[in-house]
């Protein structure tokens, strides 16, 4: 397969890489070896495990070709730690993760959800996360953690 050069801003740093046209973004990011938060699971765009942030929007890393990220801004959980820290610690406190495989993508999606819907109800949180599969928790604790973070972000409740 012929390779091409792709360049993007990855977690705030300009990077360049050689990829085949068919290489999806998640595989490209995984091949760098320094972004363990990027994972694949169904590779069909269903489970959401591979989610990353492209120009500020959460996208499926397995349905986005690496070349589609040309000259765009890509963020993984590693580059989003500051804005997701309260959410992350709420996940730990509430045991809203078990094996952790879905967690990075879940955090990115939940963060995006709370930015667009800071007052999300439990039902809206459930709808908003429905494209991110978790096989361990049954989601209840995840919904709790996201709802608690929403409350805190509104400044209502002290930890």
């Amino acid at each position: 397969m012929t390779e091409t050069t792709v360049s993007m801003t990855l977690n705030g740093t300009r990077i360049e890489g050689r990829v085949e046209a068919r290489t999806h973004l998640a595989d490209f990011l995984r091949s760098r070896g320094d972004l363990p938060s990027v994972r694949v699971s169904c590779e069909y765009g269903v489970c959401g495990c591979c989610s990353v942030v492209l120009d500020g929007k959460v996208v499926r890393g397995c349905l986005t070709l690496a070349v589609q990220a040309q000259d765009r801004d890509v963020r993984t959980l590693e580059g989003s730690t500051a804005e997701t820290e309260d959410l992350r610690s709420a996940f730990v406190e509430r045991n809203a993760l078990q094996c952790g495989y879905c967690t990075p993508a879940m955090l990115l999606t939940a963060h995006e959800l709370l930015q667009t819907k800071p007052d999300a109800t439990r039902e809206e949180i459930r709808d908003g996360l429905s494209g991110n599969y978790c096989r361990c928790t049954g989601y209840h604790a995840i919904v709790d953690a996201v709802a608690a973070t929403a409350e805190r972000r509104k400044g209502g409740v002290d930890r």
Partner: peptide, 9 residues
């Protein structure tokens, strides 16, 4: 859970 939640697993 600290490590797992940071995507560092």
């Amino acid at each position: 859970a600290e490590r797992l939640s940071r995507g560092a697993a």
